[in-house]
Amino acid sequence: MKPAIEISQLNVSYFGSKAIQQVSLSIDAGRLVGIIGPNGAGKSTLLKALLQLIPRESGSVAFHGKSFNEMKTSIAYVPQRSEIDWDFPITVFDTVLIGTYPKLGFFKKPGKKEKEWARACLKKVGMEKYSDRQIGELSGGQQQRVFLARAFAQKADILFFDEPFAGVDMASEAVMIRLLKDLAKQGKTIFVVHHDLSKANEYFDQLVLLNKTVLSFGDAKSVCRKEILQSAYKDPFSFLEQQEVNG
């Protein structure tokens, strides 16, 4: 069987500087994979390059052996919180309903079936009570749960999340990680940009340690060893601080 995500020799430049260098990865279906690395390591850039949101310089990417264009309606992406306009006049329910748009195509409006499905997705993340709220009225954790519901609504095989736990309370984080693990068990492949090292080995099956290039890739436990992490987080103090605060 073809791997869910196959990246080979990927290079990306961003405003003249190399952001991603020679990244090759092969990720099997049904895995929950975390991407960790210091600030400016190119984690979000890697995600965006995979989704063709920014141009690739060289290299190839395949999803289940197919090109992005053939697979794009089977791929869901949840952007960073900072990219969303939280004042937008849209309710929680309508935000989730957007998840049904990619498979509808042009001209078709979401009907009863789509609405029921969106409601079911909202229920899954425990947010059905907030259906009619404007999205800016929710807490950070609730907002991320709504976007998780939207990703569910896309019925995607491969899901990408950019820092889904940033600004999220502990309870929401626990709910979200449980749901992501369930999804992975159903055979979905999930790729998550993650910031907090402390729980990385509990959360993910596999980890990618990135600093422009792949420093380490493998089982979460094997990547989460001190000497490997230190190679990426060059300033040992910042690394130690993070461990103390979170640990």
Partner: peptide, 19 residues
């Protein structure tokens, strides 16, 4: 094009990602 105008105004990145 209500659907497309809505999603591209609200979440341009997602709109772009799904093509």
């Amino acid at each position: 094009f209500y659907k497309e105008l809505l999603v591209s105004s609200f979440d341009r990145t997602m709109a772009q990602a799904y093509g």
